[in-house]
């Protein structure tokens, strides 16, 4: 088994991920539906990238590909020098668990588990001991300002708080890339701002952030904005600081 953690050694100068002529299509009956095409993209470690575009343009699909939830139909996708197209399901699961942190628009917390247990899920699959994962989960909950709510169920929390739990969960295995799909889409602007502040902080700590958003306001915080239209990258905009 390949140790992906090591393959993705953190290096500021070498690209974290490289996509070359990548495309993704879905087979709908006899019709082949190309959702992404001619994707050429390089993202280096520690970068903060926003992906924008109208609904249906393929943003989520691209993010899922980056996060190894899905495999490209064609083209190359190199993550830390490994071709994702050739990895098997178990290896993809390992990458997701160890190197990727997902944040979703609708939080995707497990309703029956309390906050602590939700944060512990990624660590469970990495073989953390019960004590170690509990200790780290408490630490993470405190980090996102929910140290006093660890025994609550997600439904007892506000949307903003739930999303903070989701971010804590995404950070559990200290991933190399954090992927967020419209993280503020379900939140009021105050909670949204909280989330954005946390993301900014993560960026300043050196995390690679890729955020899908509709919100131009968020986009201005990113170093680079990639605009999609009908599955193509139509514009790459670099924000100067």
């Amino acid at each position: 088994m390949i140790e992906f953690r090591e393959a993705l050694t953190f290096d500021k100068n070498s690209p974290t991920l490289v996509m070359k002529d990548l495309y993704k299509s879905y087979q709908l009956g006899t019709v082949e539906l190309r959702v992404l095409r001619d994707i050429n993209l390089t993202i280096t470690s520690g970068e903060y990238v926003a992906i924008m575009g109208p609904s249906g343009s393929g943003k989520s699909t691209l993010l899922n590909l980056i996060g190894c939830l899905d495999r490209p139909t064609g083209g190359d996708y190199l993550l830390g020098g490994h071709s994702v197209g050739t990895l098997d399901d178990d290896q993809l699961s390992m990458i997701r668990g160890a190197c990727v942190g997902f944040v979703f628009q609708s939080f995707k917390l497990i309703a029956q588990l309390n906050i602590l247990e939700n944060i512990e899920i990624p660590m469970y699959y990495q073989g953390y001991s019960e004590q170690a994962s509990a200790a780290r989960a408490i630490e993470l909950a405190e980090m996102v300002g929910l140290g006093d709510r660890t025994r609550h169920r997600p439904s007892e929390l506000s949307g903003g708080q739930q999303q903070r739990v989701a971010i804590a969960r995404a950070l559990a295995n200290d991933p190399l890339i954090i992927l967020a799909d419209e993280p503020t889409g379900n939140l009021d602007s105050a909670s949204g701002t909280d989330i954005l502040k946390i993301l900014d902080r993560l960026h300043s700590e050196g995390k690679t952030l890729i955020v899908v958003t509709h919100d131009e306001h968020i986009a201005t915080r990113a170093q680079r904005v990639i605009r999609l239209l009908d599955g193509r990258i139509v514009q790459v905009q670099v924000n100067e600081r």
């Binding site: 939830l69 699961s93 997701r96 997902f102 995707k108 497990i110 899920i121 990624p122 699959y125």
Partner: peptide, 16 residues
């Protein structure tokens, strides 16, 4: 189903 999706996204293998 959604719980299974979440667990898979967070690193669960099929075996898990």
């Amino acid at each position: 189903t959604q719980e299974i999706g979440i667990r898979r996204a967070l690193g669960a293998k099929k075996r898990d």
